[in-house]
Design a protein around this nucleic acid. Structure first.
Lengths: 244, 244
DNA sequence: CGGTTGGTTGAGCTGTATCAAAAGATGTGG
DNA sequence: CCACATCTTTTGATACAGCTCAACCAACCG
């Protein structure tokens, strides 16, 4: 399922880092700061991998021997339900962490939504590292905390009943992830399919489509092609988002 | 808002502990094991508090100076939405952790649903402890990971469209929290109000009520009084739960 | 060019939110 | 101890929003 991991001969590639709002002090950027040494250590135990889209990194129920850090591309994490439907738990992007096990087994399936570059961190070695370096461990703790909050935010999204509102929240999340400044950068990349968006927002495929055309008709956002959206009216989008 | 914290003169009270499925090895009980020394340390920096029901421990947006561990009773964590509705993020019970901040501020409001006994752990002292004791920190990391999964499980609950199914999932969660064995202990305590259940399950108050009578009519569960349910047919409840 | 995958649009149905009101619990003070 | 006021829960009738089924359109690919 996975191509054989390859370690780059010359480490010219960037070292893994983590994106998260800090637990404590407010800094300008929402990145947990790893020291050069910590990044080196992670790079040492980690294996850099590049996989094509649709690669299944691991399946729900598999024994967990590693966690992963996304470097480039998008990963989706999901659980297949008995009804044949799919619950998408999260999209992972650059500097995101995934593969956190429960009781030594993965709780959901991870699949590359695009071509993905990532680091594979073997659990035993990572554990050794974390046990020795409490600061590094704290960065991981912060990152997991960050994911917890994203999950709660998604829960709020799912609480909504209106399809346009849900899609608006999804758009807003994607925009903020891509570091969209308040004014410019209205373009939002949507590397996933509509079906993925449907599974993530808890809507049917058709409702996503309808909600998109609705946002477009109201001049709030434009959907150009499959994988790009353009936020036209930030104020009204924000209003829709907070109109829970 | 909060009564003055009091430290017990004689530490005859139980030390704080954390409930979580372990990250790595599967043990029989779902409790993270703290060493006696770690529990002592937590008890040393922590302050034991007993608050009556409806006490607001902290509000969304407050500066975060401490985290809390529930010893007895139930706490609810929520966010009030602009529409006047309330999104309940989580119920916290014995050995649960709450008050995890984002950027030095609490992200939701915590309120005692019943009379609650808890430990208040000042952040600065806890941080010092965690920085020194990587093992202790790992217990906290595991606990947060556990909460992350509970949050994802709730997201799956919210994905459902049918009220009886949602209520069934809620019941199952409550039952498993109270350590219900597969056969006995069919009684489930529901310390919260119907309104709280509605806010947690993302249903309207009325739908919760209707769903409850429906489960009762089908002989799956009986609701006796406000705060107690009795699971009558475990098999069919499980079927309803997994019929996503 | 047919086949496949992904996306949009339309018509009807189901189930929950909503509004409204009654019934049941709870607590207070005479 | 009862009567009253308040809060919580239940029950009923209606409307609306999204799901489902189904057909259609577009892009991509050998």
């Amino acid at each position: 399922m996975l191509p054989k991991p390859t370690r780059p001969a010359i480490p010219l590639v960037p070292a893994p880092s983590l994106r998260a709002l800090p637990f404590l002090k407010g800094t300008a950027q929402n990145t947990v700061r790893l020291t050069a040494r910590q990044r080196d250590q992670l790079m040492t135990i980690g294996v850099r991998m590049k996989v094509p889209a649709r690669t299944v990194v691991y399946r729900e129920g598999d024994a967990a021997h590693a966690v992963f850090v996304v470097m480039e591309g998008a990963v989706k994490c999901y659980r297949d339900l008995h009804s044949g439907k799919r619950a998408l738990c999260a999209f992972l992007f650059s500097r995101d962490l995934f593969g956190l096990a429960e009781d030594e087994h993965y709780v959901n399936t991870a699949e590359a939504a695009t071509e993905v570059v990532m680091y594979r961190l073997p659990l035993d070695q990572l554990m050794t590292l974390l046990r020795r370096d409490a600061d590094l461990q704290f960065q991981f703790l912060s990152k997991i905390l960050h994911e917890l909050r994203e999950s709660q935010r998604r829960a709020i999204l799912l609480n909504r009943r209106d399809a346009p509102g849900r899609l608006a929240m999804f758009l807003a999340v994607m925009a903020s992830r891509q570091g969209a400044s308040a004014t410019h950068d209205a373009k939002v990349a949507l590397p996933m399919t509509r079906s993925d968006i449907a599974d993530y927002t808890g809507l049917s495929l058709e409702s996503v489509s309808r909600a998109a055309t609705q946002l477009q008709r109201h001049g709030i956002a434009a959907f150009e092609g499959r994988h790009h959206a353009c936020i036209l009216d930030r104020a009204r989008l924000a209003k829709l988002v907070s109109a829970v």
